[in-house]
Structure formats: structure tokens, C-alpha cells
Amino acid sequence: MRHIISILMENEAGALSRVAGLFSARGYNIESLTVAPTEDATLSRMTIVTRGSEEVIEQIVKQLNKLIDVVKILDLSDGSHIERELMLVKVRAFGKDREEMKRMADIFRGRIIDVTEKTYTIELTGPGTKLDAFIEAIDPVAILETVRTGASGIGRGERILKV
């Protein structure tokens, strides 16, 4: 099953490699991993999307907790949560495609953030499935380049991950 795990860790050099190293050493898979400092500059927050049986996920969480730099962990998939991912897509936009691309961006509530005579760069935010749907919806030939951040997540309501 797909799980999205949030980790608060000390903002130390090498902390990221400890997490990445753990996943490769123990053969866990990483679908995506994002990390950035939080409002407290001594802490980083990492979001990992992974897949595995309940036993594997339990081990992943335990092994992550064992890392000395890890302060707190929350498996967001255990409760209701919100997930967002940012995608930038550069698409071919000339001739009849130009209007079509604008329309598609509007339908998906994307924003065109860069324009040239022949291209648009579209910014799109949402759950990963929405970004997938956008890619599916447009002509694959028109896609020049995509870049995605991987999912970030946060618990709904009172569910808070904080030190």
C-alpha cells in the first residue's frame, strides 16, 4: 500500500543521506522524497512517499525512528490528511495548440508562468493524481519538459506534527 510519511529531523549536514541510505540499504522503495527547513531553522521536514505491506511500513517507521537525527515521525496515511505536489510543465504552444493549452491550464486551475512565442510553462498544484490527470489530458507530443516536487503532506484538523 502507498504511505506518505512525514519526518521532523535535525537540520544537520548528512541527515538526508542517512534517510536515503537507510531506504537503499534495507531495500525499501522511495516513490518521492521532499525536504526543506521548517519555520524553526534547526529542524527540517521531510515527506516520503513509499509503498509496502503493513509489516514493511511498520519496519520503515521503526528504522526511521532509530536514526539519531530523527525527532518525530507521523505516518500521514494513518489518518485524514492533505497532499499537495507542484509540477512545472513546459509545453509546445503555437498554432491551434496555443489556445488549447491555455484552456487545459484553466480547466486544471494551472497558471501560465512563462510565455514565449512557441511555449508555455504551466504551474500546477494538487494531489499527485491531479498532476497525472493533466499529463494524461494533454497531447504527449506537446510536452517538452516536466518537473515535479514530489508530494508534501499535512494532517487535517488537529493532527499536528511538531516538536
Partner: peptide, 11 residues
Amino acid sequence: IDPSSISKRVK
């Protein structure tokens, strides 16, 4: 003492 040793190979 190590939670990760528990239920690792045997439930």
C-alpha cells in the same frame, strides 16, 4: 530495547 527488532522477522 530496540522497537525495530520486534516483529521484524516473527510476529
